[in-house]
Design a binder for these strands. Structure first.
Lengths: 231, 231
DNA sequence: AGGGCAGTGTCAGAAAGTGGCAGTAGTCTA
DNA sequence: TAGACTACTGCCACTTTCTGACACTGCCCT
């Protein structure tokens, strides 16, 4: 195992621990000495990893992961840039912010001669209809989907009538200017779609929903293709 | 200079040469022996660089550049994925293809636990109105912009009337389902916008346009903000 | 054919990385 | 408070990897 590979493995190791992990444990898992482990952590930090370490406690990787060196073509970068512009303009606020940050990271390491391209000096998405931003936290929905947890929402329909729902969200669709959540609705006992701008409030629930997200998506796609058999 | 840095510098070196460059020259520029240069090139090829070498001719980098190790957060990846989905669905064909390739490259190096996210298992843009795909080659327009060259187009307006134009393209705007080129038009002697789906034919010209793209964009933005002073 | 070039293997020496050790300093718990 | 547990840094001998020099093979172009 080369050093570069070991650094990647070390990043993976952090992510397998939900609580602080000691340097000694990490070193043992990687088959290196504690001194080398300290050097590796210093190297990762130099590369931008957000690793926190407290004496007597251990290490925590606050967020993120490392990608190894990658080859890209100029066209591929254009595509990433264009996509990020769209997300920054049209998606929910946390997502828009993430797109900006992603582009900043890419720009920081990009050869300077390509700065025109990463800085989108000559292309853009039309500044258009932003739609109504949702008041609820989209990151909470993404987290609920990822962890397959129920959420409780106060939802108003097109007529403005409010209802309380416990739903199992499993998919996010991005319309131009709005977001739609596909979820199993306990009230209606079937799959329903919810616009995020009509969610008045949202409460994360600790309960896992009793079906796998993967299966819900399968059912939903089967349902959708019966309705719209173009795919 | 570490070896990793030198590999990046070597990629930069290729891009400064428009014709084949000999290994000896490259080695000299980097301050290493020819033997080491050969090893470096082997390493870059192993990383996916498209480097061609012919005895008696020299090396050519066919395309691309290398990014060093980068840290990303999960949210940032989501944003890149979402953006790529939009580009793949709504942009011109070459751009859409580039987005798919970019995502493939990222997916290939991503930790497996994140595959749900990079494979967009739980988010998507609405499959919607694709608009009319242009018959002209968008890559040619991007090239013309990048090299600040004129193009000659046969353009039909909304009424279907065709005209020949020599234009200096400097910006691409992406609408939902269509692309619009902002360019100086020699016929109208002013800045005009052209939908790419109304360009019947396009011929690249070797002539550089006599103004800097940067300046054209400045004028255009000044004009646009006089028309729409919301920015 | 000759010049110019890409390419590979080998090996001694150079450079980078590792592990062990000593020491400093902080957190947590009994 | 003391002790166990932990993060951290500098130093140095040893280990591993990389480099340059050399010899050799083979291809392209004029």
């Amino acid at each position: 195992m080369s050093r570069a590979e070991r650094l990647l493995s070390l990043m993976d190791e952090f992510r397998t621990h939900r609580r602080p992990v000691s340097g000694t444990d990490l070193a043992q898992n990687l088959g290196v000495s504690i001194r080398t482990l300290y050097r590796d952590i210093a190297s990762l930090r130099a590369l931008g990893a957000d690793i926190e370490g407290e004496p007597g406690v251990g290490y925590v990787l606050n967020s993120g992961f490392m990608l190894p060196p990658i080859m890209f073509t100029v066209e591929e970068v254009d595509a990433l840039v264009l996509g990020s512009l769209w997300v920054a303009d049209k998606a929910d606020r946390p997502m828009a912010e993430a797109a900006r940050k992603a582009m900043a990271r890419l720009t920081a390491v990009m050869p300077v001669e390509l700065s025109d391209r990463t800085e989108a000096k000559y292309l853009d998405v039309t500044p258009g209809h932003h739609g109504e931003h949702e008041s609820i936290d989209m990151a909470a929905i993404r987290s609920a989907i990822h962890h397959e947890r129920k959420i409780s929402v106060t939802y108003t329909d097109a007529a403005g009538k409010a209802s309380e729902r416990v739903i199992w969200p499993f998919f996010i669709s991005y319309l131009d200017g709005a977001r739609m959540i596909s979820a199993w609705c306990e009230l209606r006992e079937s799959i329903r779609h919810f616009r995020t701008d009509r969610m008045v409030s949202l409460t994360e629930m600790p309960t896992r929903y009793p079906r796998r997200r993967h299966d819900l998506i399968k059912d939903w796609r089967a349902l959708e293709s019966r309705k719209f058999p173009h795919k």
